[in-house]
Each structure stands twice: as structure tokens, then as C-alpha cells.
Design a protein around this nucleic acid. Structure first.
Ligand SMILES: [Mn+2]
Ligand SMILES: [Mn+2]
Ligand SMILES: [Mn+2]
Ligand SMILES: [Mn+2]
Lengths: 244, 244
DNA sequence: ATCAATTTTTAGTTAAGGCTAAAAATCAAA
DNA sequence: TTTGATTTTTAGCCTTAACTAAAAATTGAT
């Protein structure tokens, strides 16, 4: 069983992979786990010995399949607990991260799976991040775009945040933005890439800086999803999927 | 903030106090925390330095007020989580202790209090143990007797277990005993103090060994508690309690 | 009061996981 | 390609919380 500290390192490496880094540098990882590069270097050798990362001195690390599996399970626990805290204990989305940082290390598989069921098998956590399934893989990859790269004139809905820090979440609160907020992109200002957006709810217009728009995931707002998954018809007894 | 290990020592000392030991010996404590007496001796010096226990070499320890406050809070968190696991995640009462041993160390006060409210401010955990309130003191002391010391001929209800080990709880399951089971004590056998009890539900009679009856808390079964707390009347506008 | 058994403490190690300071490797600019 | 800046590793040390073995204190029985 990995210790709490080891779990935090593996999780941080997976976070960096998710941000596009194929190889993770010692110093960048050190910053994420709030340790010195020296301590991180020592830890990486141990993680390599355990078979959880591929580590070549001076060349950075990446997770092995086994390391990824462990880290995905920590994502899973963290995000399920965040759902519980918001949906059932009445916390705000900017209050739950630190608590989930502790709960994520309670390792009982039975607990995790029952919590998942209790929550109704959620696909996304309160910040719009995907929740891995019991097999340690993401259940689905949603189609989403950064607001900063979205097209003009189409109504968009905020479906997630790139940056989950409490300070950013509270800033969104001040701007009147939450998950589910609908906006339409009106103008892109040349000066610094600021975006003028219209809020569907009240028609208000605000100018959002790139530091905000590049941290928001949006999706096209489909106001009336008539039929998302068509009902299976009697004429088609076998759809090609295994029946279990 | 106490470490996980320190919390486990303080909790174990409180357990022994609750079992009637005014002073706790190094060796007995060592047995409870599954460490050697040597390790325990070293820890006790540290706990004394921190002001959480009174420790005199070769004389044993007891908790200070501050130490008791910390330990009671661990009882509180442990027992609230056990309620959550049984009442909301569908665990059996013999499956929750180990998981709660981990959850109890998640220290957020806000989390604990919100969990308490979510559960409806329960007074007892799934094993019938009292749950301390947010002030770190028991909310009420229930009147209860060991089944081994209960009077004959009166219908009794099982309200708690002295021994929460999974093995004992499963043994109770085999005997058909759970919290709320109603029995009447029929005969006390001279040989070893075994008790013949009649189960109210089906009239069955079983002989229970002292190793079982001395580990069960029972209370008199009051079949119809007409009015436990009388409704306040209009004639008494101020009952003496602050109205909050 | 003595002495043997038991309990408890001390002494000396170990393993994890941190740290600082110094050395070594890599990278980038001239 | 040399060299200076940056990154990374190594060396040495610290703290917590374990352990075993040995010494010391307490206890209980003669
Ligand atoms: Mn989080
Ligand atoms: Mn999240
Ligand atoms: Mn328990
Ligand atoms: Mn309990």
C-alpha cells in the first residue's frame, strides 16, 4: 500500500500529465507537492524502484500503467468526496478541496464504490472535472472548449474550471459565474484578448480577462436536447454491444 | 495539531478510562495501540510534554482536560462516520469499524459538524455507543445495565455492545441478537453464570454464556412511552432555557 | 526484609520523509 | 565550443515513530 506522501506525489504527476506534460521535471513536481527538489529527487528514485514511475536521472519522470492506476483512483476518491461535501453536506464548491485532500487517502475500495453508488454514479465533480470509474479509467471524455477559444455568437454553458484553487472559484463568484452559467461571446478585444460576453440570464455584458477565460471550460448550450440517446426499438434486438 | 499516531494513543487511553481504569499502565496501553511497551513509554513522555497526559514514570498515565477534549473529539468523529456508513452507505455494523478508524483522523471541524447535522444529530452509533457533541462532552448518559447483571422476568432491550470487535458482532448475528432485540431473562445457571433468555419476537429460548451476556448493554423495554418529554404549555412562556 | 518475577524505561537502530548546502549534469548563449 | 546559468542530484542532518536488547524499578511472595 502506498503511503499518503507517495499517493500525493503520484497524484501530482498525473495532474501534470493531464495538463499535457509527457515528462515531468523534478522542480515542477517539487512545486506541486510543496517540497524541495532535493526531497523530490529522493522520492522519485523510490517511486521508480516500486515500479510506479519511469525515472531517468536528469530526464524527468512519467507514470507507469500501475502508477497511473493508483493515481486515477486517488482522483476518483477526491472527486467523489467533493460531490458528497457539496451535494449532501451543503459546502460551497470553493470550500471542499482541502477536506477532500484528506478524505482521498482513505483507501477502502468498498467505501469508495458504495459512496459512488450513494451519489448516483456522478460523472463530474463540483468543478466539472471527470470522475474515474471503479476500473481507474475516465467514464467518458466530454467535448469541451476553453472559453478563450470558443466561437462568437453561439450560446455557451460553463461546464468546468481548469483551475480549482479557492481564490479563483471565489473570483468567479464575484463575476457571477458558476457551473451552468450561460453566456454568448460578443467581442474579442485586440489589446489583450479580453472577451466581451453577454449573460443569458439577465442580458448583462461583462469584459472578462484572458486569465479568466483561459481557465473556463464551456460547451455549446443545447437548449432542447430532444433525444440524446434514442430508445432502442424492437426491430433491433442486438445493437452490437454486449448485453451485460 | 496531533499526528495520527498521537490521536490513536489518546483515544486508546480514553477507551481505558471509559472501562474504569483511572490510571493506565504502559503495557496495557501498548497492547491497545499494537506497539511495544518500549515504544509506548517513549510516546508517553512526549504526550506529557505536550500537556495531554499526566505521566509519572512507572506509575502510569491519565488524560488531562485538554487530552480528554482531543480524545473525545476522535470518539465523536469515529462514531459519526460509523453512523454514516451504516445508515447511508448500507454497511453492516460489523463492517464499519476499520474504515472509521481512518476517517476519524480527518480533522476539519466544519466537516464534523455538518456531518453531524446531515445525520440528524444522532445520540448513539451503530453499536450503541454514545456520540459526544461538538463541545467534546457526551450529550447524555443513558441508563443501561449489563445483561449479565440484569433482573429476571422483565422484558429487556439490547441497546449496546461493550465489545465492538467484528468477530463478536458476527457472533451476535449467529445468535440472532442485534440492537433492539427484546429478551426476557428466565434462569441463571449456577455452573458458569450462563443465562437462559427468551426472545420476545418468536418465544425461542437460548442459553447465553457469560462471555456474551457480560458484553451486552440492555435497558428495560418500555413498550409504550406515552410521553417522554411533555409538550410545553402556553401557560409557561419561559422554561428557563435560552431561546437561542 | 529479601529476592525473584514482572513491568517499565533506557540505549541503540531503522525507515520514511522532510530539510540545507554543495557538487554535478544539463542547457543556452556567445 | 566554451562557459555561465539553471536544474538536478548527492551528502549530511533532523524528526517521528517504530523496533530489540539490556538495565532499572516495582511488586509480590516468602
Ligand atoms: Mn479538488
Ligand atoms: Mn475538483
Ligand atoms: Mn468503532
Ligand atoms: Mn462504535
Amino acid at each position: 500500500m502506498p503511503t499518503v506522501s507517495v499517493e500525493n506525489y503520484l497524484k501530482a504527476i498525473l495532474h501534470l500529465h493531464e495538463e499535457g506534460k509527457v515528462q515531468v521535471s523534478t522542480t515542477e513536481l517539487a512545486g506541486r507537492v510543496r517540497a524541495t527538489p532535493a526531497s523530490t529527487s529522493a522520492m522519485l528514485r523510490k517511486l521508480g524502484d516500486k515500479g510506479w514511475v519511469i525515472y531517468r536521472k536528469y530526464r524527468g519522470v512519467h507514470l507507469t500503467n500501475e502508477g497511473r492506476r493508483i493515481a486515477m483512483n486517488i482522483f476518483r476518491r477526491h472527486r467523489l468526496w467533493e460531490c458528497f461535501l457539496v451535494d449532501h453536506l451543503g459546502f460551497e464548491w470553493d470550500e471542499v478541496h482541502e477536506i477532500a485532500e484528506e478524505l482521498e487517502h482513505v483507501g477502502s475500495r468498498d467505501l469508495t464504490n458504495r459512496l459512488d453508488a450513494f451519489l448516483g454514479f456522478p460523472k463530474l465533480d463540483p468543478h466539472g472535472d471527470a470522475i474515474p470509474g471503479p476500473n481507474g479509467r475516465f467514464r467518458s471524455v466530454a467535448a469541451r472548449t476553453l472559453l478563450s477559444e470558443a466561437p462568437k455568437g453561439i450560446e455557451l454553458v460553463v461546464v468546468g474550471v481548469v483551475d480549482g484553487r479557492d481564490s479563483f472559484l471565489r473570483h468567479l463568484g464575484i463575476l457571477g459565474i458558476a457551473l451552468g452559467t450561460r453566456v454568448t461571446l460578443e467581442t474579442r478585444h485586440a489589446f489583450d484578448g479580453s472577451l466581451e460576453v453577454r449573460f443569458s440570464e439577465n442580458g448583462d455584458v461583462q469584459v472578462l480577462s484572458p486569465s479568466v477565460t483561459a481557465r473556463l471550460w464551456v460547451d455549446q448550450s443545447n437548449p432542447e436536447p430532444i433525444i440524446v440517446f434514442p430508445e432502442p426499438e424492437d426491430e433491433e434486438p442486438n445493437s452490437g454491444y454486449p448485453s451485460v
